[in-house]
Nucleic acid binder design. Structure first.
Length: 269
DNA sequence: TAGGCCATCTGGTCCT
DNA sequence: AGGACCAGATGGCCTA
């Protein structure tokens, strides 16, 4: 929200007091009409008809609705006060949710940069899921490699993280990849096709991209290589050379290179 | 202009 | 009873 520079100026997360008041006044009838016929059945004609009510009619109707709902009469001002309170709570709740969503965006790689469009909520959630799955997969791969190394040397006779602690194994996986800005390993993998064909499903990725089929997840320059934009490139960033890290030496199955990386769009179907 | 995304309002439901 | 949570409806903004 706060990071949505394209919207925040014209669409504040918290409306002006006047907006709330006007909206409440406008819906003092609308809302309570919903108490009768439910919002789902409110037809535009009904709404238009209700909007034509006089203030006295509105008050009467509001009181009737309140009486029907709460079994007790409340003054219009009391009802309005309650409604404002509830609306305020809901706004705060949604605002907190958006703050949390922004926090999630911040720890997501490739979501930073001047030309990068803010991830949508659904894209953020889906990418976060894939990111977690990728990290888990990377960790498993690390464990496997370490196990092979030490297993063959007879040092440990096998990999057992609980005995080894975190010094040996936690290093390669940055706790906060977005903050580290290290080129590997997490920066690019989440956007690669399924690392684990069982857990990291392609539909999850395609689902993300299907949200914004035209410009992909991010607002990238027109010269972007694909729907994901140049921000998603791991190889080729800066030097155009492949990352030398061990993770990149072993690209996921079916992904020989980024250049042949399947487009993360619905056209893969 | 259509479609996507979003904020907000609202009523219902569940929980404490 | 009050608050949290949820989902539907609505309308505005933005982009292709």
């Amino acid at each position: 929200m706060d990071s949505d520079t394209s919207r925040v100026s014209s669409r504040p997360s918290s409306p002006e007091v006047d907006d709330i008041f006007i909206s409440t006044l406008k819906k003092s009838v609308h809302g309570f009409s919903g108490a009768v016929s439910s919002t789902q059945s409110d037809s535009p004609l009904e709404m238009a008809g209700l909007r034509g009510l006089s203030s006295a009619d509105e008050e009467t109707l509001a009181l009737r609705m309140a009486a029907k709902k709460d079994r007790k009469l409340l003054s219009e001002s009391e009802l309005q006060s309650i409604r404002l309170k509830i609306n305020s709570r809901e706004r705060k709740r949604m605002h907190d949710l958006n703050v949390a969503m922004d926090g999630l965006r911040e720890v997501m790689p490739y979501a930073h940069g001047p030309s990068v469009r803010k991830l949508s909520k659904i894209a953020t959630l889906l990418l976060a899921r894939n990111y977690i799955l990728m990290l888990s997969n990377s960790l498993e791969e690390m464990k496997r490699l370490v196990s092979e190394i030490y297993g063959s040397s007879g040092h440990h006779g096998g990999f057992h993280p609980s005995a080894c602690g975190t010094m040996t194994h936690a290093g390669p996986v940055p706790a906060h990849p977005a903050a580290s800005h290290a080129p590997h390993p997490a920066v690019h993998h989440p956007l690669l096709p399924p690392v684990s064909t069982s857990s990291l499903s392609a539909p999850a990725i395609s689902a993300v991209t299907s949200v914004r089929p035209h410009h992909g997840l991010l607002k990238a320059p027109a010269a972007a290589a694909g729907p994901l934009g140049s921000s998603f490139q791991h190889w080729g960033v800066g030097t155009g050379m492949p990352c030398p890290c061990s993770m990149c030496q072993v690209p996921p199955p079916h992904v020989p290179s980024m250049s042949t990386m399947p487009r993360l769009t619905s056209d893969s179907k």
